[in-house]
């Protein structure tokens, strides 16, 4: 099973892939409406907001946690500024 290079989500169904295209390496949640992959800043912002909304963490803590989670993913491994 493929996992999204930008958020780590396992992609099981066709609907999980960006534009429903199993050839893509990123998921539907990491795609812009035109099917291109979101930028690092877009992903960081959306993931931080997701953590705040669904887990209630402090905004700053959520952003740092999102930053660390993204740093472990193939799409963002070389992202400047990502914490070790």
């Amino acid at each position: 099973m493929k996992t999204c290079i930008a958020c780590g989500m396992p992609m099981r169904e066709t609907a999980d892939f960006a534009l429903g295209d199993p050839a893509k390496d990123y998921c539907v949640h990491c795609a812009r409406p035109d099917g291109t992959m979101q930028s690092y800043e877009e992903k960081l912002t959306s993931m931080s907001a997701f953590i705040v909304r669904n887990q209630g963490l402090d905004q700053g803590v959520a952003r740092t946690a999102a930053c660390r989670m993204l740093a472990a993913l193939p799409a963002w491994k070389d992202q400047p500024g990502a914490p070790l």
Binding site: G8, M9, M47, F50, I51, R53, N54, Q55, A65, R68, M69, A72
Partner: peptide, 20 residues
Amino acid sequence: PTSTRTTLLGIQTAISFHLA
């Protein structure tokens, strides 16, 4: 270490996604 808490948060993020 912090990396541990990040992993735990990653697990919680996955379940919170499905739950929400």
